[in-house]
Every structure is written in C-alpha cells, then in structure tokens.
C-alpha cells in the first residue's frame, strides 16, 4: 500500500495531464461543497453516481485498450447491445412462470456475455490485424453490423419481461452500501490495470502502439496482440451491456447510442494518445469520475438545464487539449533550444 502511495505521488509530479484532471475534480468538488453541499454530499448521491457510470465506464476502458495500440473501437455500443439482447432472450427463456430464475442463470449470462464480447472483439481484431482495415473504419462497420444484428433480432423493439431477479441482483448494494455495478467495474478496471502495468502483454501493446513496424521487427506477434486487445475491448463492452440490461431492465438495439462518442471523449480526456503508445488507466478513470461528478453536480442546480452537461464536456475536452498544447509547446521549445 505504501508503495502505491508513492506511485500516486510520482504520478502527480510527473504527469501533468493526471494532475490537471485531479485539480479539476477537486475544484469542482469544492465548488459543489460551497454551493450545494447537502444535495451532493450524501451517501445516496454517491451510490447513484457509482451505479450509473460503470456501463459506459467499461466501454471506455475497452476503447482505451484499443487506442493504446494505435487503433480505436467504435463498435462497443453495438457489442454491448448485442450481448444484452442475446442474454435478454436467454433470461426470458429461463424465466419460470412465477418469475424466478434458476440459480445457474446469472453466472451463465455473465459467462455468455464474456464469450459474446470476446467473439465480437475477435471479429474486430481479425479485420484490423489480418485484413488490415484501418481500425476506425473496421470497427465502425462492425458496429453497424452488430447493430444490424440487434435490429434483425428484435425488429427494433425492446426485449423485456424477463425475471426481475437479474436486475434486482445487479442493482443491489453490497452491505447496503456498495453498488454491484461499481464492483463489476472495479474488478474489470483492476484486471486491465494489472494487464497493462504488470504483464508482458501490457508492455507489448504499448510498444506496438508506438511503432507497429518496429514491433514486427522485434519479433512481436503483432496480429495476435491486436486480436487479443480487441477481444478484451469486446469483453468490456459485453459486460457494459450486461449492466445496461440491469439498469434499464430491458435490452434494445438503440440503447446507449450516444456512448460511442462519449467514451472516445472520456478516453482522450483521460490522456490516452489517439495515435497510440501512450495512456494510463488512472487518467481514464479520473476522466470518468470527473464527468460523472460534473453531470450529477449540474443536476443539483434545477434552473440549469442538464443539457448543459454536453457543453461542459466538450468544453473541458478542448480546454485540456489547449492546456496540453501550451505546456507541451513550452517544453518543446526549451528542448529545441537546448539542442
């Protein structure tokens, strides 16, 4: 634990971007504390926030992984909805007449979610690595295809009326405090953090993201690495879909359609370089927290339209980019002059 604190400290010193995000969160929390303390600082409010963000937070983690390799995954929402719809059908079939589920149902749908997500990710990964379609196009097309599958399966209607047990379970609070959605997110975030910073695979995808050709010449199995990355992203999206299924208590082809751009925005805001090779999960999680807090905080001002949040998101993203631009340019000119 001690070393972790030290790490956070050195992050804070070394990484301007992370620092800026933390400062922004603190400033916002202070502002809210001064103006709407009671309406914001309650356990219930934090629980609500914690239950809301995991669905798109998971998808953002997927995009982050792909962006580290120099790609992107625009099919996450498609994968999430496809997973949710297929599992909704399964749950519907398993729901008994008195509205209960057999005990194996919940683990089964989660295993299935992982399998579906991984399969969809495999498809993306093959397109990107073997067919060599630029990731932005491949995943855009695949996303449209997955959405198409959802539409074809449901005719655009919502799938619901399955046992409420599932939704209730996911919407539970462990010990009355800790939302299950958050737990799922944390588990996945820890897994990804672990993969990125503690495993060989993590190092390899950073290297691959900064120079694909050099990665090939260094003997990395680049195709396999890419495929695995997109599979991981697919799994994240699949789990995100499972949380959506619980939060809406139904599944539909067009749920969460704004999440694609929103997640890309989060990931970039979190300091991940869209060209690949750079980015930390801590930044992305901070970006998720910042945006969730902004949105919830704004909602505490009833006379301000909640739609302003979109304005603020975009503004924050551009602001951070501009700040980065000026700080980097300063660094760059100094370096240049020294050379």
């Amino acid at each position: 634990m001690k070393t972790n604190f030290k790490n956070i400290g050195s992050y804070f010193k070394k990484d301007q971007h992370i620092k800026r995000l933390i400062v922004m969160i603190i400033v916002w929390m202070l502002f809210i504390a001064l103006t709407k303390f009671n309406k914001f600082y309650s356990l219930l409010n934090f629980q609500t926030m914690a239950a809301q963000f995991p669905e798109f937070g998971l998808m953002a983690l997927g995009i982050m992984l792909c962006m580290i390799t120099g790609g992107i995954d625009l099919s996450i929402v498609g994968i999430a909805n496809m997973t949710a719809i297929l599992n909704a059908f399964l749950l519907l079939a398993l729901t008994s007449e008195n509205g209960s589920l057999p005990p194996y149902a919940i683990p089964l749908v989660f295993v299935l979610a992982i399998v579906i997500g991984a399969a969809a990710g495999l498809f993306n990964g093959l397109l990107v690595s073997k067919v060599k379609i630029p990731a932005i196009l491949a995943t855009m097309g695949a996303g449209e295809l997955f959405r198409g599958v959802c539409m074809a399966l449901t005719n655009g209607n919502a799938v619901s009326k399955f046992s409420r047990t599932y939704s209730q379970l996911i919407n539970n609070k462990i010990g009355g405090i800790f939302p299950v959605q958050l737990l799922i997110f944390i588990i996945m975030a820890v897994v990804i953090w672990f993969i990125l910073s503690k495993t060989v695979f993590g190092t390899k995808i950073y290297m691959l993201g900064s120079n694909l050709k050099a990665a090939k010449y260094s003997g990395l199995k680049t195709d396999k690495l890419l495929i695995k990355t997109y599979m991981l992203s697919g799994i994240c999206a699949g789990l995100g879909g499972m949380i959506m299924l619980a939060n809406y208590n139904s599944a539909r082809a067009d749920y969460g359609s704004v999440y694609t751009l929103q997640c890309v925005l989060i990931v970039v805001l979190g300091g991940v370089n869209p060209l690949g090779g750079k980015g930390k999960i801590s930044g992305v999680i901070l970006a998720i927290i910042l945006l969730r807090m902004l949105e919830t905080g704004i909602n505490r001002f009833p006379h301000i339209s909640s739609y302003y949040i979109s304005l603020i998101w975009g503004g924050v993203l551009i602001l951070i980019m501009v700040l980065n631009y000026f700080s980097e340019n300063k660094k760059f000119t100094i370096k240049n002059k020294a050379a």
């Binding site: 925005l265 739609y307 979109s310 304005l311 975009g314 993203l317 551009i318």
Partner: peptide, 20 residues
C-alpha cells in the same frame, strides 16, 4: 490540435449550446 478530438469536443459543445 488533432481534428478528431477537436470535432469530438465541438460536437459536444454544439449539442450543449443547442439543448442547454
């Protein structure tokens, strides 16, 4: 600045101006 990020941000800003 990279066009993808700027237009992503401005898209959000435009939406915010319109709806907010």
């Amino acid at each position: 600045l990279p066009a993808l990020i700027v237009t992503l941000g401005s898209s959000s800003v435009f939406k915010g101006v319109m709806q907010g």
